[in-house]
Design a protein around this nucleic acid. Structure first.
Lengths: 210, 210
DNA sequence: TGTGAACCCGAGTATTTGCTCGGATTATTG
DNA sequence: CAATAATCCGAGCAAATACTCGGGTTCACA
């Protein structure tokens, strides 16, 4: 099926009409992905559900991977916006509050179209363009690392990287796990409490032992 | 490509010769998966690399999913054996030692054909038979939960489940992350140290506050 | 050593699916 | 109001790929 895609360039939408078309195609892609899963998602089906012709789809997306990658990028961007909004709040000098804020960002992120998120994470193979688009974690980790170095200049850069990795990894894993396996713990906030019990002492100690 | 697979039953290998064939096919599947990735893995290619005919392959595996699922099951089983071997050692009454043993089990597990593990985790879509085959985490979690209830009978069953989830999730996520992103921290043991710093206080406290 | 069962073979078939291309339709510009 | 560009269309091609089937080969066992 999908060969060694040499990314053939496509035209950019310039008029309002075509930008609308692209948007409709992406929305349809999301719906089809969620409903049928990745490998039963075909470009023809997406075009049909979007109400545009297959020809139009290929005007703007050179292949299926590029199509899904575009959607994934948009999704990740939306997540990042939420995280940024939380990370920029200036009052988390207190380590406990900082961790809590991070955690809330993680939980929040998982509330953006969780069904799509699940498909992207579980079914879409991380290959080629998709690998980069789906690599949320490392972006986030770097972001945390930067914040850390800004707020706790005493930390060596190696330590900052390590602590950022631990925080990001655990938050991402725990929230994701809760979403798919124990949604009731999300509602009740139990997961949040438990994660704080795990991460706050760790983080406090990491800051102390500089 | 692959339709709504209605699992058509295939014959079981009974003679030594055919068992050998099945083994060879599975080994080839692993090699092909690692080398070409999931969607460029075709049944025809697997048969060719295994040195058997495509007909023989379909004697024992009804379709591609079943083939990969069989391989995944075998892999998971191998992981579980290692984990069991560690978990059954009787001397971890000390909470710190218990966590350390768990962690070592996690790290150990990731040393079983890590390349294959990576492909299975990152590329193979969790659908149908594959979803179950790849669900290592929940099996492990239940195993930890049982061990926990046996060794710390003071814990309520809800707490045991929660603590097991946290331990399993974090160990799995951290080790996996280290493997793919910072292998040097695996060599030096830094990841292990750091994970212990995170998990031991948490676990000790969880046991104390019964 | 004969016979049926288990096993193996691989060219070929039936589908699926990504994607093109020539031409119609709509917008923009001078 | 041309003329040119942008957009849209969808039948159909080419290639890939999962899977079958009829027939040959090897094994178990009486």
């Amino acid at each position: 099926m999908v060969r060694e895609k040499s990314a053939k360039p496509r035209k950019q939408p310039v008029q309002k009409r075509s930008r609308q078309t692209v948007a409709v195609i992406l929305q349809a892609t999301a719906r089809v992905l969620v409903r049928y899963g990745y490998d039963r998602t075909t470009t023809n089906l997406v075009a049909e559900k979007a109400g545009v012709s297959i020809g139009s789809l290929y005007e703007y997306f050179p292949n299926k991977q590029a199509l899904v990658a575009a959607l994934a990028s948009a999704h990740v961007e939306e997540l990042m916006e939420r995280v940024d909004r939380v990370l920029c709040v200036p009052e988390e000098d207190d380590s406990a509050l900082f961790v809590a804020a991070l955690l809330r960002a993680g939980l929040d992120a998982h509330r953006v179209n969780p069904a799509l998120h699940k498909v992207l994470v579980e079914q879409v193979p991380r290959i080629g363009a998709l690998a980069a688009s789906l690599d949320i974690s490392s972006v986030l980790q770097r972001k945390i690392e930067a914040t850390l170095q800004r707020r706790a200049p005493g930390l060596s850069s190696a330590r900052a990287r390590m602590v950022a990795l631990v925080l990001e990894t655990c938050i991402e894993a725990l929230t994701h796990r809760a979403v798919v396996e124990a949604p009731e713990w999300l509602e009740t906030g139990e997961i949040e409490t438990e994660a704080l019990r795990l991460l706050q002492p760790y983080f406090a100690q990491a800051l102390a032992s500089r």
